[in-house]
Nucleic acid binder design. Structure first.
Lengths: 200, 200
DNA sequence: CGGTTATCGGCAGAAAACTGCCGATAACCG
DNA sequence: CGGTTATCGGCAGTTTTCTGCCGATAACCG
């Protein structure tokens, strides 16, 4: 909870036991402007998570020793909402189900096209942007201290704010997207202290 | 709470365009003590949902006309958090990902073993932890457009279920942690379809 | 057996949220 | 200038939710 701010960057942790593939993907991502951390084992990946602020994890499903699912479980303990992307070459339906149940946001198939990975990550950054913030609001703050009501209100605020951002401040679009009564939305914005013109 | 004394009704809606398979599965489920409704098309399934209280929907992913995903989207409009189980014979990884993103709780492969289906449904009834599915709805990354209300409900469900997990099912601890009125918590659990599980 | 603890649900009044109607305020466009 | 569009807030009736009180049901322990 120290001052880890000043980092609105987007940091990705890629976990893959194939050293060459890992290095290639990492290089591509870095060139594309994404802060990229790497790890070749689940253990070192967990360490990385403790040391850095990571926004997204990309991990192989099958790795020698600790597999990707177990790693994800461990990671979730400290980062409940962190987006996790799995990839695998021989994924079965149950594999995918298990991964998604663990909160995976996507499941890519090997061999990974660097372009595809980049698009996926950019998509997460754009759409999930708010969820990352929400993690800090609804979860980060909450650590046992925030009440149910507080967390729900924080979440409501997050939904409305991200929807506003997404629709560039057009209330009518937000009303349509969230299927919410105009009057109710106005009241909530007032109560939650949401204004249409935030820092851009 | 090991067994179900008061036998709360548990109604399943099975949607499959294959009449024979549907009939066979329905018969098996009914014999096994599960109230089972059937539908051979998405349209009639949606009708069933309006007419009956359904606890779980089991649907084929591929059906002539309206496909399973679209049907699930429609169903969610009236039953935002109802558990949905998909099944399919030729599911690709992206298929499974899409289904799970829509809040599916499981994905079975054809041909369906009646025993497996029964176990799945019993699992959902007895100790289904919908937290992750709720999380997916609340923080959906995809193009899914859940309403404000739906997402808030999903988030509330997520909070309560994870708190229950964390406190091993002790209501009093959850009340303390979430700072929520006992009566309110009970009502919410009822409304959101949250059941306490036995100790792990 | 009685006593304790934990949980649950009915009930009803209180509190809060929702929502339709109304008018007001801007900004923009001929 | 008048007309259109988008937004906002007051108000009030309706609906929903919250919450305290009460009793019921189990499980458990002497």
């Amino acid at each position: 909870m120290s001052t880890i701010e000043t980092a609105p960057d987007f940091t990705v942790l890629v976990v893959d036991d194939d050293h060459d593939v890992l290095a290639a993907n990492a290089r591509f991502l870095r060139v594309s402007g994404i802060d990229t951390l790497v790890a070749e084992t689940a253990e070192s990946a967990l360490q990385r998570l403790q040391q850095h602020t990571v926004d997204v994890v990309v991990t192989d499903l099958r790795m020698p020793g600790c597999d990707g699912l177990e790693f994800a479980r461990q990671a979730r303990l400290s980062r409940p909402l962190m987006p996790i992307v799995f990839f695998s070459g021989f994924a079965t339906v149950p594999d995918v189900v298990k991964a998604m149940r663990l909160g995976a946001v996507d499941f890519l198939e090997k061999p990974i096209e660097p372009e595809e990975l980049l698009l996926t990550l950019q998509g997460i950054r754009d759409r999930y942007d708010g969820a990352i913030a929400a993690q800090r609001i609804a979860f980060g703050v909450s650590d046992e201290t925030a009440s149910f009501k507080t967390r729900v209100l924080a979440y409501e605020k997050y939904i409305i704010e991200t929807s506003l951002l997404k629709h560039e401040g057009r209330i009518s679009d937000v009303i349509d997207a969230l299927q919410i009564n105009r009057r109710t939305l106005n009241d909530k914005m007032l109560r939650l202290g949401i204004t249409r013109f935030t820092e851009d």
